[in-house]
């Protein structure tokens, strides 16, 4: 049976689709966006992560950790050794039924509010079998959404799309070279999947993270506006970059080193979208 690592289940997520939602973050992502704020969601492997804050430097966790060039790699034993319980496995392994059981405890409240469940990541589409099985189990139980980079084969995208009610779809950079530079992958499949999404008639929203000097340029936002206009999409959510994005890197023993200047305030350039009669929501 398909199984997947879940690195967080967030209740009362208010920005991940209609109504009150629970968002499930699936672990593992084919992209490596420079501004990624969920480093523990990137790897498909389970690592032990440590909250730095509250650490008394007692050293108990280090006794069973492995020292590497980039820092310490903690073991299962380290988790139990911490007297303040600051370490935990980044992900928890679920089979679809177990995840649905856990989500069920809130499902009445979610439904009453017109909300539901959103699958995010990492990249939820990189766990197609698990995702589709889980979505099918939730069919007719609650509203099902995915929050995705759109990066996967068109076959998988179509198969998932059949089982969701709402899609939050990222468009980061239209220029493919830039896309490869900042996310590590080409956007060709993403743009193809966008077309599939538009044609499907499903409810969706386009989201663009505003990364200073990377995605918030006049050129990129103009290209996005043109792209949306071509599909007759009249609304976009812009998510301004926030300097706390790198906050969780130390927890996974890594350093956050963006090549862009994160101290610059991101520019939404709403006038570009207004020109195309596209409504902008800044989140």
């Amino acid at each position: 049976m398909a199984e997947a690592l879940v690195f967080s289940i967030e209740e009362f997520s208010t920005f991940d689709g209609p109504g009150i939602r629970t968002t499930v973050f699936l672990k593992g992502c084919p992209l490596r966006c420079e501004w990624c704020h969920n480093p523990e969601g990137q790897s498909y492997e389970n690592e032990v992560i440590k909250t730095q804050y509250g650490c008394t430097n007692c050293g108990e966790c280090l006794k069973s950790a492995e020292k590497t060039d980039s820092g310490y790699v903690y073991s299962e034993k380290s988790i139990l050794a911490c007297p303040n319980r600051l370490l935990r496995p980044a992900g928890r392994l679920y089979i679809p039924q177990a995840l649905v059981d856990e989500l069920s405890k809130n499902i009445n409240l979610l439904n009453k509010s017109g909300g539901g469940v959103t699958f995010s990541g990492g990249e939820p589409l990189s766990h197609p079998e698990f995702l589709i099985d889980t979505l099918k189990l939730l069919d007719n139980k609650t509203n099902r959404a995915i929050q995705t980079s759109g990066f996967c084969s068109n076959e998988i995208f179509k198969a998932v799309l059949e089982n969701v009610d709402y899609v939050l779809f990222d468009i980061k950079l239209v220029d493919d070279k830039q896309h490869i530079k900042y996310t590590g992958v080409s956007n060709r499949s993403i743009l193809q999947n966008l077309e599939t999404l538009v044609k499907s008639g499903k409810d969706f929203v386009i989201r663009t993270p505003l990364i200073p000097t990377v995605t918030d340029t006049v050129q990129n936002l103009s290209e996005i506006a043109l792209l949306l206009d071509g599909f007759n999409i009249r609304e976009i959510d812009l998510l301004p970059y926030n300097k706390v994005a790198g906050g969780k890197y130390a927890a996974v023993g890594r350093e956050f080193k963006p090549s862009f200047d994160e101290t610059k305030p991101p520019h939404p350039h709403t006038e570009i979208f207004e020109r195309y009669d596209i409504k902008v929501n800044i989140l």
Partner: peptide, 27 residues
């Protein structure tokens, strides 16, 4: 007193995190 605030959730950008799980400059 981080030990007293394990439940403190902060909305950061398009996402949320536990305040105490963030590194110092971010807090």
């Amino acid at each position: 007193h981080p030990e007293n605030h394990k439940n403190l959730i902060v909305r950061v950008w398009g996402w949320s995190g536990y305040f105490i799980e963030l590194d110092e400059p971010y807090r």
